[in-house]
Design a protein around this nucleic acid. Structure first.
Lengths: 354, 354
DNA sequence: TTGTATGCGTTATCAT
DNA sequence: ATGATAACGCATACAA
């Protein structure tokens, strides 16, 4: 692999000139520039990014630390990150599957010097401080974390989304509305539960602790929770499920038990995973725009990394949208959902904005 | 951010000794080592990966070039890559969304010096040679590409999977079996079409060019194709669809037209996306283990990058599995599919191996 | 066991 | 407009 020296020698100029050709390009004469570029092309030369980083202290690379890469949620986020980063000429150094904060720190440490900024989705609540210690003064954006002081952060409007979903159920006449929660330590789960409770309180719904069933965001846990739900006396007439994966499990259990959705029990999920619209009945749910979340994180991060922004930590919140389909038994279905679809699909679910 | 010099000074040793502590660790006395480690911890020192790479010419990073990051297919692949790479202490430098080969080359060039090896899923047929020119002597693994000479490559058993799917339909008594293909230039699509044709020829099925409908792997294109399919005279009794996304569109169009699946028309897809089991009826399809595909790519690549392997280019093929659900009208449903699921789901689809 | 000195490929700072 | 040379942070051959 040719280096700057090879190009300099072949071109009959100094390495400084070659370097200038590939950077400033203003201080080099047309003729010299032409020669150098030709030689570089012939030798298939391109500046070594590592050597360049060492002296400039800039890598044009963003570190991305996620708990997982699987599923639509993470897939959407990383896609948004990728698009936005590429648009600014940045690469992505990705590491995922961190079981705990310690593993995350190990990954972060080994990125030292290789990245200009960091996007982190921390599994634990205690992660941020540990991260800061290992990250030096590198700009960091927290994805979906709490109000950690001193960090830029982007969160999801979990509370609002859950509130809108439950309020929708109550407008349909439901007073006894159950919920299936996510993991207790999970912030999204906590906030969604908060929205559920608030909507219930604001709309004179029944506030019964037994109506709060516990899941862990997985489909089997939804199945389990639904089994418990069916044993409640009196039985709730609707259920707000903390995410769509659990809602799939709930739907399965209800169908098994011979319950009709939404007639016997109305159902609303959260996330709007792709599958939601293809369930029977199509699932009413709260949409989270994960792509935009990723994009937003990059914009926020580059604002700091490139010194465009400064001062106060910025906190942004990604809005959510209630997507009404048939599982909630809405009496007034909205227009056909068309986002991202190119062809009319008459068999698809009706939907309406929140 | 502390450097090796800071640690050396604070520890009262030379930078060479500090370096040894963080590398060999055999040639340094216990005492010195202890002091250095303490100081390093206090100063929050960790070797700068970029500087280290410059001299060792090893980055412990793998480049990953994919056409997209969206959807289960890519999500599964990159997850497999991530896991396998992490297990070997490697990072991932990811770049995606390359519309054409030129964009891909630009991305590749800017990775120069930053990666020890490359995993590429090239959108175009002409990509490999361009890649080689820009990659120097870096080890490369091609994902899902043809028989490009001189490269390690991992492909999917598209032909076998399609063959098994269509053969299954014929065993169920179907003779007039249609297909919906993917993009003409797409290798997967070509191979799946090949498997369809071969199974038809081997099993005295009807070989009618009109039975080959063209799609582009998107759901709307499946919807369109199904509309054409319904106008065929005589109407086929079964259809093998080139991927699950199109199969969803086909199913929608058939349902719209009042056709019953599988009674009026049997349906088989390809990929086994998560949604497949939740459709009505659950979709019989050919499973591709994308996770294993990614893992395999990393193993193959590291074999070369770490100098473990040599000589002949290796070509591996990921096997596929026919997952029988209800959309094909199989008269003998297999055991309940349990892979990756922790809780029995009695309402779930029956399945059987190929 | 430890220190000195060189070089990795590049940019940046001086010169000229 | 161009060249010589010192950094950048580290690993390593060689010396001690």
């Amino acid at each position: 692999m040719a280096t700057i020296k090879d190009v300099a020698r072949e071109s009959g100029v100094s390495i400084a000139t070659v370097s200038r050709v590939f950077n400033d390009s203003g201080l080099v004469s047309e003729d010299t520039q032409k020669v150098v570029r030709e030689v570089a092309l012939r030798l298939n030369y391109w500046p070594n990014a590592v050597a360049r980083s060492l002296i400039t202290n800039r890598t044009h690379t963003l570190g991305v630390l996620l708990p997982d890469l699987h599923g639509e949620f993470f897939s959407g986020i990383i896609r948004g990150i990728d698009r936005a980063a590429r648009a600014e000429g940045f690469h992505l150094l990705v590491s995922s599957s961190h079981a705990d904060t310690e593993q995350l720190i190990v990954a972060l440490r080994s990125m030292r010097g290789r990245i200009d900024g960091l996007i982190v989705m921390a599994p634990d609540v205690d992660a941020p401080s540990a991260i800061r210690a290992s990250a030096g003064d590198m700009p960091i954006v927290l994805l979906d974390a709490g109000e950690s002081a001193g960090y830029d952060g982007i969160s999801i409007a979990n509370f609002d989304g859950a509130y809108a979903a439950v309020r929708h159920l109550m407008r349909l006449g439901h007073r006894r509305v159950a919920t299936v929660t996510g993991p207790a330590r999970n912030l999204d789960a906590q906030q969604r539960l908060g929205g559920y409770r608030a909507a219930l309180a604001d709309g004179d719904g029944e506030c019964d602790p037994r109506l709060e069933l516990h899941g862990d965001f997985t489909e089997p846990s939804g199945f389990e929770a639904a089994s418990q739900l069916l044993r409640l006396e009196p039985r709730p007439t609707a259920v707000f499920v903390g995410n769509d994966h659990m809602a799939v499990g709930v739907l399965g259990a209800l169908t098994d038990a011979g319950m009709r959705v939404p007639d016997d029990l109305a159902l609303v999920g959260f996330d709007d995973i792709e599958m939601a619209r293809y369930l029977t009945p199509p699932l009413t749910t709260v949409r989270v725009d994960t792509f935009a979340l990723g994009e937003c994180a990059v914009r926020c991060l580059l604002g700091r990394a490139l010194g465009r922004a400064g001062g106060e930590p910025r906190r942004e919140q990604m809005p959510t949208t209630l997507v009404v389909r048939r599982s909630c038994g809405s009496t007034r279905p909205g227009p056909v959902e068309v986002a991202g679809r190119r062809v009319p699909q008459p068999w698809a679910d009706p939907a309406e904005p929140a």
